[in-house]
């Protein structure tokens, strides 16, 4: 009797986690997984605007097999300057190069602000967070203005700096139109135009403050004794930084870097408004191109295939980043 009861209890407790997950999966079933399956089916058809009314029940809807996928991969779409692998490479490079700049800058500035006895520390900390809270749309509009060819602050600033070196010509750099990469061959296969550098500068402004806040939190949790002991042993400030600060920041900064990577990877609003993917699609991300396919070109079949490809890319990115963050966990434990 007692045994039977305990057995029933185990059965119930095995079911319990699934019960807790039920609401989420019911909702996601309708609004995430159903659309995803729908996209997979549509991706094998020639779905266009005229099929929107009846959806998959449209009589003229044709199954075209892998045509949409092949068209995307072989750049056979009648879209100018589109090459899937170039966009993919650029997308990864964009996310990676952002994180590579944001994390060290954030750590460095957090370290400066953590100096004991620094005046106005709190005010700096409060104001440095401001870029994070401005809506991306506003950020993009402001920075587009800063890089304006005629009136933009960046060209004016460069003209002033040029003046110090005896260059009196006004600067008219066409940040968003110039298709010639300033550093040829920097990223083989995906030329980086001036627009990329302009976006990097603007996104740097947007990105480092978050990393700096994360680093500040982690810095404050490092025990002071460690530095005192290092000082007694005769370690210099720089040695302390590399041997104490950096290793102890790692567990906090790696997840933040992963978060930053995924955020930059899909940074739709910002890229869409600053460059719209141009010039000549040199700054197109997977997301902005997907949006173009749906919103402007209205090739729903191709767009669905593209969405499925993005999904596959996202899965790979997720599995890799998950590995990386797990590594941190082991680091902490060991």
């Amino acid at each position: 009797m007692a045994i039977a009861k305990s057995k029933r209890k185990t059965n119930k407790s095995q079911l319990l986690p699934y019960l807790y997950l039920l609401p989420a999966f019911l909702v996601m079933g309708v609004i995430t997984f159903y659309p995803l399956i729908y996209q997979v089916i549509v991706s094998f058809t020639n779905f266009e605007t005229k099929h929107l009314l009846l959806g998959l029940k449209s009589p003229e809807l044709e199954f075209v097999g892998f045509k949409n996928y092949i068209d995307i991969f072989t750049a056979a779409l009648p879209v100018e300057n589109f090459n899937f692998f170039r966009v993919l490479e650029f997308n990864f490079w964009w996310a990676l190069s952002n994180v590579i700049l944001h994390v060290p800058a954030g750590v460095l500035i957090a370290t400066i602000l953590n100096t004991e006895g620094l005046w106005l520390k709190r005010i700096y900390r409060a104001l440095y967070i401001l870029p994070v809270v401005v809506p991306p749309l506003v950020v993009a509009v402001v920075w587009t203005n800063i890089f304006d060819e005629r009136y933009g602050a960046m060209n004016q600033l460069l003209a002033i700096i040029g003046g110090w070196f005896g260059n009196t010509d006004p600067v008219f750099i066409r940040w968003f139109e110039d298709v010639k990469p300033p550093i040829p061959g920097f990223l083989p296969g995906a030329p980086l135009t001036l627009a990329y550098y302009a976006m990097m500068i603007a996104n740097f402004w947007l990105g480092w403050p978050f990393m700096s806040v994360v680093a500040t939190g982690a810095l404050q949790s490092i025990p002071k004794d460690l530095y005192e002991a290092a000082e007694i042993d005769g370690a210099t400030g720089i040695q302390q930084f590399w041997n104490i600060t950096v290793p102890l920041l790692r567990p906090a900064m790696i997840p933040a870097a992963v978060y930053g990577f995924t955020l930059s990877f899909n940074l739709f609003n910002f890229v869409f408004f600053m460059t719209g993917g141009g010039p000549a699609r040199s700054t197109e991300l997977l997301v902005t191109f997907a949006y173009n396919l749906v919103r402007n070109l209205r090739w729903y079949g191709v767009a669905a295939a593209f969405a499925v490809i993005i999904f596959a890319v996202a899965l790979v990115v997720f599995l890799i980043t998950n590995r990386i963050t797990r590594a941190t966990q082991n680091y902490q434990e060991g």
Binding site: T32, Y34, P35, L36, Q39, V42, A290, Y291, A307
Partner: peptide, 8 residues
């Protein structure tokens, strides 16, 4: 991205 699921 949300755009990926918007059509369905």
């Amino acid at each position: 991205p949300a755009v990926g699921l918007s059509t369905p």
